[in-house]
């Protein structure tokens, strides 16, 4: 064999670090850019309030950037933490950790840009309640960061997993699948949560007295949008901690990799879709607060139907892991 194990592990960890930081910066960059764009729009409407607008823009950008800082932490760990290498599984685990954090930061960075941008416009509309708008924006952006935190948890677990006594052949694919499952599923959830947060900030700016109701329905909508990421986390945990018997076949690892990809891609769509539903529901609760009861019910029904595809993906993943 031309490469020894140490070389392959080094390639995987440096490659994983590059992918992690590269992908992880995409979402934060777009989110921060969106915030900056709306802040410019707000400045052109009311140049004399530039201090308050820039202040809120900085707060929002600092929060949107934290997804990229998570990716930075994982990338630095991948580069400088050289774990003791005993078998090839370490390479797969480190590469998977990089992929997981890289993909996982995209949605959160982009999503938390929406409330951060809307708050700049909202302050121009309602300067009197700027503190309240900032609070609402911070809550919305913080919930958007949850999928990135899930991805970071899975990445850290993959890095510090004890792989010494595991079978190499199917487990390499299981670890890769575990990374991809949470990483990809987090994209949709982060983005969807951001849509709901953004419309809640602009809704409160329109009708400040609906603050409580709008914040509540935003949190409900965002919580439902997080479900695909939680499904992804579940599949990742199963893939990481189930013991797979050693085999020489190529079908078994492909089934496990397929399970990870299935849940990962399958989580993107429902996450974004739930976000769309929550966005409209939050927007119209702010405009028509008497209909908040029926709007909440319809939102939950709509989200539940949209969630069903994520459930199909989870079922197929579980079949791939446990049945075949």
């Amino acid at each position: 064999m031309p490469f020894d194990i140490q070389t392959i592990v080094s390639i995987a960890s440096y490659g994983g670090a590059g992918v992690c930081m590269g992908l992880g910066a995409i979402g934060a960059a777009m989110g921060v850019g969106y915030t900056g764009g709306l802040a410019n729009q707000a400045l052109s409407q009311k140049p004399e309030a530039s201090g308050t607008i820039v202040k809120n823009m900085l707060i929002g950008q600092a929060i949107a950037e934290s997804a990229a800082i998570f990716a930075l932490v994982i990338a630095v760990l991948l580069i400088y933490l050289s774990p003791p290498v005993t078998n090839l599984l370490t390479a797969s685990a480190l590469g998977a950790a990089g992929l997981c954090m890289g993909f996982g930061a995209i949605g959160s960075g982009l999503g938390s840009g929406f409330p951060a941008g809307e708050v700049c416009l909202a302050i121009v509309r309602q300067p009197a309640i700027s503190g309240r708008l900032t609070t609402n924006m911070l809550i919305g952006s913080a919930v958007c960061q949850t999928p990135a935190i899930f991805a970071m948890v899975v990445a850290l677990m993959l890095m510090f997993l004890d792989v010494n006594n595991l079978s190499v052949n199917p487990t390499w694919a299981a670890l890769l699948g575990a990374g991809l499952s949470t990483g990809l599923a987090a994209i949709g959830s982060g983005f969807g949560g951001g849509l709901a947060g953004g419309s809640s900030v602009s809704g409160i700016a329109r009708q400040p007295e609906t603050f409580g109701k709008v914040t509540t329905i935003m949190l409900v909508g965002q919580a439902v949008s997080q479900t695909p990421a939680i499904f992804g986390l579940l599949i990742s945990f199963i893939l990481m901690f189930k013991i797979f018997p050693e085999t020489t076949s190529i079908a078994a690892p492909m089934a496990l990799l397929g399970a990870g990809l299935c849940m990962g891609f399958g989580g993107i769509g429902p996450g974004v879709g739930n976000g769309f539903t929550a966005q409209s529901a939050v927007k119209w609760v702010a405009r028509n607060v008497e209909a908040s009861g029926i709007l909440t019910r319809v939102m939950l029904v709509g989200q539940a139907v949209s969630q069903s595809t994520a459930i199909y993906a989870m079922v197929v993943s579980l079949v791939l892991i446990f049945v075949v």
Binding site: M254, G258, C262, G266, G269, T277, Q279, Y312, A313, V324
Partner: peptide, 25 residues
């Protein structure tokens, strides 16, 4: 196996987004 995973995974994106959009409207 990998085809099954990709079929369900990629196939779930469209309906997920679409149904959510309908719910929003």
């Amino acid at each position: 196996f990998i085809g099954a995973g990709l079929a369900m995974g990629l196939g779930a994106i469209g309906p997920g987004v679409g149904e959510g959009f309908v719910g929003g409207k």
